[in-house]
Design a protein around this nucleic acid. Structure first.
Lengths: 205, 205
DNA sequence: CGAAAATTTGACATGACTCAACTGGAGTGG
DNA sequence: CCACTCCAGTTGAGTCATGTCAAATTTTCG
């Protein structure tokens, strides 16, 4: 018999808490845990299901407990361009739409069956105001993201397709394992054919 | 007679304050102003002078009161790649080095004579802890930056050189006016020759 | 198993780069 | 004030990387 008012598997939130503690470097007590958990809600999405579609307003930002997702845009010619990937312990969502309540330019689709913890804009604000650990965590997160995107810009403007691929293999080997090759190509900004040739050329050497 | 312990032209800080008020949407009182000002120090740099060089640790982040700067990296072949530009009311600095105390991979050079307001890592932390306006402002700033860099990544991987140039002209016309063409080319990730051809081709149409 | 999607391969087209030569200003020193 | 240099920008020619289109092959998944 269990005194648990919340109808979700405990493991889901444990993933979030250990992640928060690790990233913020601050221990989170039982009470704070309850508070944090109360601001999130659980959502399960299957492969191919969408968390967000172009034109939607991103009401929630999601923490990925298990699974994989991609965020992409579609240009006038109908080509898809992967802007970000998301895996376990990553956040996924269109920040711009989420913070400014504007229609999103992006789609977010699950690439595997995925468990998400969702938090609304108001929820996130409350969390930052009332939980020092959470506030600190969000700041760290933003710094990390800023550094990573800066690096990606640098890669995009200064490296050849092959160099970019090698760099991705080194930096995010998980991506290569979890996402199909055409999505990797799109993420790198090259055609699937070119990526195929790069991989085969590289193998031979 | 004036009770002013600080030996700087008032105008410098006024630029910062009106910027902070506008961005944070919060009014800043006299006392808070003094506190904020006390955490910054003024620095003037001439055209061609450096704010940061590769290998340095970025002890300060700078707010540009007047002037223009570029942040760039140098690859193994000795080619320069402009990662960011900075103009009035922009912040300039290597965030990664600034927050993690790691040697920077970038150079920051003034493109015009420039007035900067510098703040250290500790100074910034104090400001965020003690000034609600400042804290809110930094958060807004990070969101804005994240959205902008995301957009730039998208541009780099999905658009042709010409489209990227047209996009830049629309989004940041100031850049075209204030930075020489070879730096613009570097920012766009194309050769100066290609940019020259794009411009002349476009003019003809 | 069978349909649909992903990947590979080939042939060809093209955008962008490199190298080199030329042009035109901006700055400098005689 | 002119001659000279230096650097940014332009232009041309040739090359290379990458894209496009089409077909063949393999993998995935219902």
């Amino acid at each position: 018999m269990v005194f648990c008012a919340i109808d979700y598997p405990i493991g889901m939130y444990d993933t979030l808490f250990s992640y928060l503690e690790e990233k913020s470097g601050i221990h989170i007590g039982a009470e704070e845990r309850d508070f944090i958990a109360s601001k999130f809600r659980h959502k399960h999405l299957r492969r191919r299901q969408y968390f967000l579609q172009e034109g939607d307003i991103a009401r929630y930002t999601g923490f990925i407990v298990r699974g994989a997702a991609r965020m992409y845009s579609v240009d006038e010619k109908g080509n898809e361009h992967v802007v970000r990937f998301g895996l376990e312990n990553w956040w996924i969502g269109d920040q711009e739409s989420f913070y400014h309540f504007t229609p999103s330019r992006y789609h977010i689709e699950m690439v595997e069956d995925t468990d998400l913890l969702l938090v609304s804009n108001e929820g996130l604000q409350e969390l930052q105001e009332k939980s020092a650990a959470f506030d600190h965590f969000v700041k760290m997160q933003n710094q990390f993201t800023a550094a990573a995107t800066q690096k990606r810009i640098h890669a995009a403007i200064s490296m050849t397709a092959e160099e970019r691929y090698e760099d991705l293999v080194k930096t995010y080997p998980q991506f290569i394992q979890r996402f199909p090759q055409n999505m990797i190509a799109s993420y790198l900004g090259i055609s699937p054919e070119t990526l195929s040739r790069i991989r085969n050329g590289a193998r031979r050497r």
